[in-house]
């Protein structure tokens, strides 16, 4: 463990400021709470929001799991895990069941989470309306007035043009019947896992200086239409390693002749399934 820094890098005043933002976020599910995000020793875009949230809630007794694209051994997940080992000396794990805090980028673990777990999401653009209306002054008003018409129009135009809603990840959802929020760039496959989840879900956007939350057992409804209900991705083949047909799969290109295979994106879940089968 590296000495010379406070536990988990951030000083206590900063943690207190972030915890206050977290409490507000939990109290108003899906509302984006502005917070005085700090410059972290990793670049913006590398998960500085998630790292600040994790640093603020971490205690010496915690067991931390960090995943990126569902995997524990992707370079950025390795780097963030190392950062907390160095600055906080906490135990780490690759097993979803054994973790008390899971920081993730782009995926929700396949295994269901428990009440004693917290899932921390890294968020690049917290504003679901940003690409429809780039101005913060406008989008804040829309949220305040619960004026989400432009989002529905966008989804409708997708259907009119393509026959489908053409949003495959960062799929907008409504939290607790009030705020439309961005679940971070997880594939829409993962959206149903956010609904009524036993674990506390915290979202940190460092560059954009926003924190939001989905408290345990909160309704999260992916936006859709009665005649075009929300649906998730499906694959025509099972995972080539564990044979799963119910998990999110990554496509691996095997040669230059178009040969490819599909494997679980959640490496821990896949390994467990293989062990069970063996």
């Amino acid at each position: 463990m590296t000495t010379g820094y406070n536990f988990a890098y951030l000083n206590e005043q900063t943690k207190r400021m972030i915890r206050r933002a977290l409490l507000k976020a939990v109290a108003i599910p899906g509302y984006q709470v502005p917070f005085a995000s700090r410059e972290m020793p990793m670049p913006y875009g590398w998960g500085t929001g998630g790292v600040q949230v994790t640093a603020s809630i971490l205690t010496p007794g915690d067991t931390l799991k960090v995943i990126d694209q569902g995997a524990d051994d992707t370079t950025n997940a390795v780097s963030i895990r190392k950062f907390f080992v160095r600055t906080a000396g906490v135990a780490t794990t690759e097993e979803t069941e054994k973790a008390s805090i899971i920081q993730t980028r782009h995926r929700v673990p396949e295994a269901s989470l428990r009440e004693d777990q917290i899932l921390v999401y890294q968020v690049p653009i917290p504003e679901p309306l940003r690409f429809l209306e780039p101005r913060e002054t406008e989008t804040r008003k829309m949220h305040a007035l619960e004026e989400y018409g432009i989002m529905h129009v966008k989804l409708y135009e997708d259907i009119a043009r393509h026959g489908h809603i053409a949003t495959a990840y960062a799929y907008p959802a409504k939290v607790n019947g009030r705020y439309v929020f961005d679940p971070s760039p997880i594939p829409k496959f993962d959206n149903p896992k956010l609904d009524d989840c036993a674990a506390l879900q915290l979202f940190g956007a460092g560059r954009e200086k926003r924190i939001y939350a989905v408290p345990p057992y909160t309704k999260v409804t992916s936006l859709d239409f009665e005649d075009h209900p929300f649906s998730v991705q499906k694959w025509e083949e099972p995972c080539a390693l564990c044979g799963s047909t119910t998990t999110y799969l990554d496509e691996i290109i095997l040669d230059d002749k178009g040969k490819r295979m599909f494997v679980c994106s959640d490496t821990d879940h896949c390994r467990k399934a293989q062990e069970k089968a063996a």
Binding site: Y44, G45, G70, A168, Y169, K188, R207
Partner: peptide
């Protein structure tokens, strides 16, 4: 940070787009 983060893996979202 945000420009260069495009170097980080995005294969989950890319897979979603491919599909």
């Amino acid at each position: 940070g945000f420009v260069e983060h495009l170097k980080l893996p995005h294969y989950v979202d890319f897979q979603a787009e491919l599909e």
